[in-house]
Design a protein around this nucleic acid. Sequence first.
DNA 1: TTTGTTTAGTTAGCCTATCTAAGTTATAGT
DNA 2: ACTATAACTTAGATAGGCTAACTAAACAAA
Lengths: 141, 141
Amino acid sequence: MRSDPRELAEGFSLVLRDLVLLLRQVTAEQPVSAQQLGILGSLEAGPRRVTELAREHGVRAPTMTAHVSRLEEAEAVSRGVDTDDARVVTVGLTSRGRDLLAAGRAARTAFLAERLEALGESERAALAAALPVLSRICAGG
Amino acid sequence: MRSDPRELAEGFSLVLRDLVLLLRQVTAEQPVSAQQLGILGSLEAGPRRVTELAREHGVRAPTMTAHVSRLEEAEAVSRGVDTDDARVVTVGLTSRGRDLLAAGRAARTAFLAERLEALGESERAALAAALPVLSRICAGG
DNA sequence: TTTGTTTAGTTAGCCTATCTAAGTTATAGT
DNA sequence: ACTATAACTTAGATAGGCTAACTAAACAAA
């Protein structure tokens, strides 16, 4: 049985470690970290509140506050207020933020696409088939 | 074309972000971090030198020195000397380190196995088929 | 042998990224 | 009006990563 859950979990666990190393390579030499890029991505469709961003990225509020502060420092986002609730801080992309997002995404995609081009067609098909499964694994809980 | 490299890279990129969140969940509430667990795993077959560990885990020497120091502080590893080369520091598992390794692995595998059990047989098969591909992607470069 | 270079590891100092605890201000409920 | 809750920030801790610079040992060569 090749897909025994326990056995598969062990193999998956090893791959997970390698993926972390891969992610470090993807991120290295880029002006925007993976976390920051993710946050910028969340703002693409419009401003969001800090709490919302924190939940979406699986971190606590103070962590997101720090991220937003750094991004604000880099002039990639700007803080605003909510007219309905004065406690709320909204975070929106600046034009510089938009540029950084586009550049970061392009670099990341290019890096990965290069790796994927080195694979065979059937390997890419196997990966494509696994992506939704991986999503489900991550979501499930 | 479902497995166009560029398109696939974008999907993969999104999954990669989710996998980071998954990894945080796997690691949370455990006494030993993913990195530390990985290092302990490298020592299972016998003592290793710091430089060797650094290369294997894709970090610089000072980073590995810090890891080893923390693990030593936790009494999970112990530093030793190489009889042939007095510059070399060897790092070996203590019995406590062995226990932490076993416990950490069991917890991690249990967590993942639970997620995998929630999948269908064909999904597990798709994942199993993709693991070697993922390994190749990580290795290639 | 003395001198210079490379290698192994550490230290120092910086940055990101995460957490908890505690504080501030605003909203909401009684 | 009082109290509780909620949104965010601040303060302080820790892990994890980096570069630069240091020490000590090994090697190489004159």
